[in-house]
Design a protein around this nucleic acid. Structure first.
Length: 70
DNA sequence: GCGATCTC
DNA sequence: GAGATCGC
């Protein structure tokens, strides 16, 4: 597959918006792996989101298979 | 507590 | 720099 689409299809992640307490589907601004150097601990993938309500950013876990961003 | 990252 | 994120 040939065809590099620059228009990626960002799959929305279901996350709990701490500002509203609502579970919403958002596309992360940034995603990275947060894990200790010490192996044996996998850590978690973290996404940076922005609350649609307040515009305030917050972090939440994203699925391990979610691609990193930026 | 560790890990990276961001906004305040 | 704090604080928040998650699982071990």
């Amino acid at each position: 597959m040939p065809r590099k689409k620059k228009t990626a299809k960002p799959k929305p992640v279901k996350v709990r918006d701490p500002t509203t307490g609502e579970e919403v589907e958002l596309v992360p601004i940034k995603v990275w792996l947060l894990a200790p150097k010490s192996r044996g601990r996998k850590g978690v993938k973290i996404g940076l989101f922005k609350s649609p309500k307040t515009g305030k950013p917050f972090r939440a876990k994203v699925p391990d298979d979610y691609p990193e961003i930026k």
